[in-house]
Amino acid sequence: MTSEIESRLAEIADVQGRVGGFAGADLSQTEVLFTSWGCPPVTAEVLAGAPRLKAIVHAAGSVKGHVTQACWERGIVVSSAASANAEPVAEFTLAAILFANKRVLDIARLYRERRGRLDWDARFPGFGNYRRVVGIVGASRIGRRVIELLRPFDLEVLVSDPYLREDLGVAQVGLEELVARSDVVSLHAPDLPETRHLLSRPLLAAMRDGATVINTARAALVDQEALTAEVASGRLYAVLDHTEPEFLPADSPLYDLPNALVTPHIAGSLGGELARMADLALDELDRYRRGLPFLHGVEPATLSRSA
């Protein structure tokens, strides 16, 4: 936490101090918990020692790891900075989409190897972003932001989400149609039992030759073994910010395949981007102080289908 953030926090609230865990912590006078990644669960036992607790403001993404059923039963209001974390993920995804259709990785590699001019059009006929089809799987907070960022481009955007009930200004189609039509399939669904291997071996096989899978969501959404086989064959491309395991073993072929870009979970907020999340959380804390409802409140009913 930077000195600027700490100063603003002190202006908004009477800060009792930091705790690394709840064991032995005196929460008897605590009205708001200001939490971040790694916060332990706020259990019924913790709540018993925090009789005045009314709110949890989370300066990170998902609250599933620490906001328990006991918190909802107590009527505690909860806010999350997930929308701030969505921004860099959406930006990363936008760059990946544009680079994928432009075949930037391929051309850069060949240029480095050849050290001279190549016939790009012969090597990559029709490459580029004009009128390409991009499929967004999951109308989540990040998925919706990606759709917004894609609007200025001459792309056809499809979305598939069984829970989507509103018009996002793009064509809503079934998952099978989306993977069959898309040049890029970008995943933005939550990791739930029903979404495990959502992009299955048959659906991967149904994708267009030369299409790209982008996963900035969760590794479990993709049958990674099947995807690796498709990429190794040269038929598909992949941009993966999430893998199973999170850090691939040294002998994984994904490291060396020229049509795969694998990054170690860097799409979300890192470095200076963390300040955006802290600023949003402080804004929410200030709203609570002034008796206003959260702008980024978390509702328990939506947690079953969110990250």
Rank of each mutant, 00 (worst) to 15 (best):
L257D: 05
G49I: 04
S306D: 07
R235H: 13
S36G: 15
F22T: 01
T35Y: 00
S62T: 12
P190L: 08
T302H: 10
S83I: 00
G272H: 13
D241L: 07
T35N: 07
V146W: 05
A48G: 14
M1A: 15
T302D: 15
K64Q: 14
M1H: 13
L110I: 15
R181D: 09
R18P: 09
G268L: 03
T43Y: 05
K64R: 15
L149K: 08
R115E: 15
D167V: 08
M207W: 02
V179K: 10
V179D: 08
T212A: 12
D286W: 01
P253I: 12
L118S: 14
Y237E: 02
A44N: 12
D241A: 08
C71R: 01
T302E: 14
I56V: 12
E225T: 14
A84R: 04
F99S: 15
V159H: 03
E273N: 13
T30N: 04
H188Y: 02
M1V: 09
R141P: 01
R181I: 03
T43G: 11
I147S: 02
A206P: 04
R181W: 02
Q224G: 07
E284L: 01
H265D: 09
G291D: 10
T2L: 08
F34E: 04
V298E: 03
V42K: 03
E156I: 09
L282C: 00
F92Y: 13
D161K: 07
A301R: 13
P162V: 07
L47D: 11
A13I: 04
D154G: 12
A250Q: 12
L198C: 03
S252Q: 10
P190W: 01
A96I: 08
R290M: 06
L221F: 01
L254H: 01
T263R: 07
Y255N: 06
H66V: 04
L221W: 01
T35R: 06
T35M: 02
P249T: 05
R8L: 00
L270N: 12
S252T: 07
A13K: 03
P162A: 11
L198K: 03
E166K: 08
T68Q: 14
G24Q: 14
R151A: 14
A50D: 12
K54Q: 15
V239N: 08
E230Q: 10
S7V: 08
S304L: 11
P152Q: 14
S36Y: 15
A84Q: 02
T2Y: 01
T68G: 11
Y255R: 10
A267I: 03
L98E: 05
I97S: 02
E244Q: 14
D223W: 05
A50F: 11
L198R: 05
R131V: 08
V159T: 10
Y163E: 13
R109H: 11
V46L: 14
L270K: 11
R287F: 11
A301T: 07
R18N: 06
F92P: 03
Q224N: 07
P125C: 06
R114F: 06
P88A: 05
F34C: 00
R18W: 11
D286F: 00
